[in-house]
Nucleic acid binder design. Structure first.
Lengths: 249, 249
DNA sequence: CGTAAGTTTGACACGGATCAAGTTATGTGG
DNA sequence: CCACATAACTTGATCCGTGTCAAACTTACG
C-alpha cells in the first residue's frame, strides 16, 4: 500500500492526548499545533493509506479525489481555509488529497482527535454538523452529476464558490485557484466543455474574465437561475408539482 | 412547506425519553417501538419536512430521492431491512422517502434518539460508523455518475445488490424490487438505456432474466470486471499507475 | 379476459467527448 | 528584462453514446 510520499513529513509533536484542552470548537483542537507548509501540487495522502491524521486547512486550497480504472479521476471536493479533512473517515482514507495552491495546514492524530471529542460533549454536535454538511454537499453533487447539463453544472459550481466567499457582496470577483482540468474532473465534464461553457457565459454577459484564476460575476441572479434550482426545500413547490405531473409507478 | 401527506399516521407512542434502555446497538433503540406498515409507493416524508423522526426499516425497500426543476428525479439511494433512515440529518430532511414495496418500519423521535446516543457512549461509534459508510457510498456514487458509462453503471449496481444480499453464494439470483425507472433515476440514465444495457448483458451471457423483479447472475467475475474497478484501495495499483501517466498540472 | 402499467426495441437526434490546432499565460535561463 | 519553452486554455471539426420519440410487447391485476 502507498505511503504519504512526496510530502515533507513534520515530526509528530504533542499529538498524544493533551486532554482537557477545553476547546469550544473543533478548530480549537488544532490551535496549539504547529503549522506545516506545502507547495502547490503536493500530495497530503493517498486513497487507501491508513487514516492516521486529520488536517485543518489554515490557508490555501486542496482537492480530494478518487482514481478509477485507466486513470479516470473524479474530484469529490475542494477544501479551503477553515475546513477539516478527515472527519468522515474510519481507518483508511477514502480519497487522495493534493494541494491546489501553496497551502498551510495543521495536523492532529485521529487518536487525539477522537479522545478530545469523546471527552468533550460540546464538540460532538460540531462533529455531527460537519458530517451532515458533508453529506448534504455529496447529495447535491450527486444531483449535479446525475441530471444537470454542462451549463447548469458550471453555473452551480460558480454559484457555490460565490456563496462560499461572500454571502452578500457587490464586487463579485471570485478566485478559482484550481485549473480547468480540476473543474472538469469535479463537474464530470471535459476541460473543453468547461472552457466552451465559460465562453458562452461570457457571451451572455453573465460573467467576465478577470485573469486566469479569477472571474467576475455580472449577473448573479442569472447564475442562480441557470444552476437548475437544486436548492431543495427553500422553494421546491414548482419541482414537486412537475414531479407529480411526471408519469411513474 | 409540505407535510408528510399520503401517509397513515401512527400515534407517537412512548417516544419521549425512556433513557437507560441500555441498548448495545442502534437497532436496539427501536426494538420496543411499534411496527408500522406501509403499502408500496407510499411517502414516508418529503424533502424539506422537519426531520422529527428516524426510521428503522424492518422489512421491505425504500427509495430516497431529490427532485429538481422541471421534475427531474435523482434517487440517491435504496434502503433495506436493517437500515436506519435519517442518521445524517439535522433539522430538515434532505430528501424525500417512498416505499418501493410493502414495508414495515419502526420510528423513533430524533429527540429520543439523540438523548439515547448522548447517554450511551457505546452507541456513538455505531452512529459514526453508519455516517461514514453513508459517506463512502455517496462518494462511490459520485464516481459512478461522474465517469462511468452505462454498462459500468448497471454492472456496478448489480454487483452492489449482489454483495448486499449474499457475500458468497452460488445460486446468485438477486431480487430487484424497484422498477426500471427507479434504477434509471439512481444510475443517472434513462429507462431505455437501462433496458438496452440489461439486454446486452443477457446477450453476453453475464446475467439471465428471472422474472421482472429478479435477475440471475451467471458470471460474477465479469460483472466485477465491467463495473469499472472503483474498489479503491483494495487494488488500485493499476489505477494509480495510469493516473501517473496522464498529463496534468 | 381486458386494461393499464411497465418494459423492450427501433429510428433518429443531439450534447458533450474526442481529436487537432492555435492562442495565451507562466515561468526560466541567458 | 527579454527570449524562449512549456503548461494551460480556447476554439474548431467531427464522432459517438446516450437521450428522445414512437411503437410493440409483456406482465400484473381487477
Amino acid at each position: 500500500m502507498l505511503h504519504t510520499a512526496n510530502f515533507h513529513h513534520a515530526k509528530e509533536v504533542a499529538n498524544v492526548a493533551f486532554l482537557g484542552s477545553e476547546a469550544t470548537c473543533l478548530l480549537g483542537l488544532f490551535k496549539k499545533l504547529p503549522v506545516e507548509r506545502l507547495a502547490a501540487g503536493q500530495s497530503l495522502f493517498f486513497e487507501g493509506d491508513a487514516a492516521k491524521h486529520l488536517f485543518e486547512v489554515v490557508e490555501g486550497s486542496l482537492r480530494i479525489f478518487k482514481i478509477i480504472s485507466d486513470g479516470r479521476r473524479v474530484i469529490t471536493g475542494f477544501l479551503h481555509a477553515g475546513d477539516i479533512i478527515g472527519v468522515s473517515l474510519k481507518d483508511r482514507y477514502l480519497y487522495s488529497a493534493e494541494t491546489v495552491t501553496d497551502t498551510r495546514i495543521r495536523r492532529i492524530s485521529r487518536k487525539s482527535f477522537d479522545a478530545e471529542v469523546a471527552n468533550s460533549p460540546d464538540l460532538r454536535p460540531e462533529v455531527f454538523a460537519r458530517l451532515c454538511d458533508e453529506m448534504a454537499a455529496a447529495q447535491e453533487q450527486m444531483v449535479l452529476l446525475s441530471r444537470k447539463n454542462a451549463e447548469e453544472r458550471v453555473c452551480s459550481f460558480l454559484r457555490k464558490e460565490l456563496l462560499r466567499v461572500c454571502e452578500e457582496r457587490a464586487d463579485l470577483v471570485i478566485e478559482l485557484p484550481m485549473t480547468r482540468l480540476d473543474i472538469a474532473d469535479y463537474l464530470g465534464l471535459t476541460i473543453e466543455t468547461v472552457s466552451r461553457t465559460m465562453t458562452k457565459l461570457n457571451n451572455k454577459g453573465i460573467v467576465a474574465p478577470a485573469g486566469r484564476h479569477s472571474i467576475r460575476i455580472l449577473k448573479r441572479s442569472a447564475l442562480t437561475q441557470l444552476a437548475g434550482n437544486d436548492d431543495g426545500y427553500l422553494d421546491n413547490t414548482v419541482e414537486l408539482a412537475a414531479y407529480a405531473r411526471r408519469p411513474h409507478h
